[in-house]
Each structure stands twice: as structure tokens, then as C-alpha cells.
Computed example of a mutant assay.
Amino acid sequence: MIQIRNLAYQYTSHTQILEFPDIELGAHEHLLVLGKSGVGKTTLLHLIAGLLRSQQGEISIGETKLSALSSRKLDQFRGKEIGLVFQNNHAIRSLNVFENLKARLFFAKKPIDIERIQHLLHQLDIEECIAKKINQLSEGQLQRLGIALAVVHQPQLILADEPTSSLDDKNCELVMQLLLEQAKNNHANLMVITHDHRIKPMFNNLITL
């Protein structure tokens, strides 16, 4: 369950206070957050991920209140329970695909399950890339690896920042199907933050900032 109450954030005393609507997601529920550039979508994602500390309000993921965690515990919680899908690929370029996924499990303090890694790559149709270095992958393969890195440790919550904005209609639908499928397979909540209105029909829960 994801619960957000009375959340607000201000970068400096001279900038606008960003206020966010309350959010409550039950088990396996997903949410689409729509909004134009500059309205605070990425700020909201960073607050939920614990990359920014909320100045007002409360964020709970499962039984955990983020405000109750020390910086160290918050880093550990994020590494274990949250999966992040960024616009830009954050894979380690000196490692191959398999090594990147092993490293993600290591940092999440999860066992290295080779069979799970192989199965995940098969689901995402990049099994043949398992030994390839990052600079050998196509843009589509990099995007799928980004999804794999976000879910390999079986997080409670998957957060995706503009995952489809640069894609044509066919690949937009494909990436969203992969994200929704992986959320279902991992019994995780999925929250997508975007300005891309094409994916509205895929969500029952929607808020606009």
C-alpha cells in the first residue's frame, strides 16, 4: 500500500511551494500522474523515492514511513523496496548486462538468483544480450534493461519517470505493457509520472498536477 498525505516541497525560500494531492493505492493498484513540464512531477517522484526529504506531509510505503528513517536506513529501504525507471539509462557501462543485474541485487542485499535473472531477460526479450556490454545495446534494449534493473530485486513500488515520452506509438505501448506486466509479476505498485497522454487508457487511477 502507498499512502501520501498533505505533501508539499519548496526548493528555496524564493521559489514556489509545490503542493501535491493525497494519494492512496491498495495492493496491486497503479497510478498515472500527468502534468506539463515544471509542475513538479519529477519532484513528486523524488519525494516518493526518498531522493528528496519532504518538508511537509507524510509518505508511507507498506508499513514504512519515510520520515521515520535515518538517511542510511532510507538509502537501504530505497535500494531494497523501490525500483526506479529513468528516462536516461543508469546502467554501469563497464559491466555487461548480467553483471549489472547481479550488482543491482547485491546493492539491494538480495540473493543472486541466476535463474531469475535469465527468466527476467527472457520476459523482456533481451536474453541474447546477457553477456553484452552497455555500449553494444540498442536504444530499445537499453530501455528494457532499465526495466529489468528496476524490478530484478522485486520491489514493493516501481516508479517510472517519463518512460514513453520519446517513443513512437508502437514502442510506447510495448514499454507500458512491459512495465505493467513486471509490476503484476512482482506484486508491486506502479506509478508512472509523465506528460504523455497516450497511456491514459492503461490506468484506472489518474491524477493531474
Rank of each mutant, 00 (worst) to 15 (best):
Ala131Val: 14
Glu181Asn: 15
Gln118Phe: 14
Lys36Thr: 13
Ala131Pro: 13
Glu19Asn: 14
Lys200Gln: 12
Val151Asn: 04
Glu63Gln: 10
Glu29Ser: 02
Phe77Tyr: 12
Lys170Gly: 12
Asn204Glu: 14
Leu159Trp: 01
Leu25His: 03
Val39Tyr: 10
Glu127Arg: 15
Arg116Trp: 11
Leu18Asn: 04
Asn96Lys: 05
Leu18Pro: 06
Gln16Ala: 15
Phe98Asp: 14
Ile112Thr: 10
Gly38Met: 05
His195Arg: 12
Asn89Asp: 13
Glu162Gly: 05
Arg78Ser: 09
His119Ser: 15
Asn205Lys: 07
Val192Leu: 05
Leu52Gly: 08
Asn89His: 09
Asp168Pro: 06
His195Trp: 09
Phe203Gly: 00
Phe203Asn: 02
Arg198Thr: 01
Glu162Pro: 06
Arg93Val: 15
Asn205Val: 03
Leu52His: 03
Thr194Arg: 02
Glu173Asn: 12
Ala150Arg: 02
Glu58Trp: 03
Gly35Ala: 01
Gln182Arg: 07
Lys65Val: 08
Thr164Ile: 04
Leu190Cys: 01
Val97Met: 00
Leu145Met: 07
Leu105Phe: 07
Lys41Leu: 03
Cys172Phe: 09
Arg78Asp: 05
Leu180Ser: 01
Gln154Thr: 12
Gly140Phe: 07
Arg144Tyr: 08
Lys102Asn: 12
Leu101Gly: 02
Leu120Asn: 03
Ile147Asn: 00
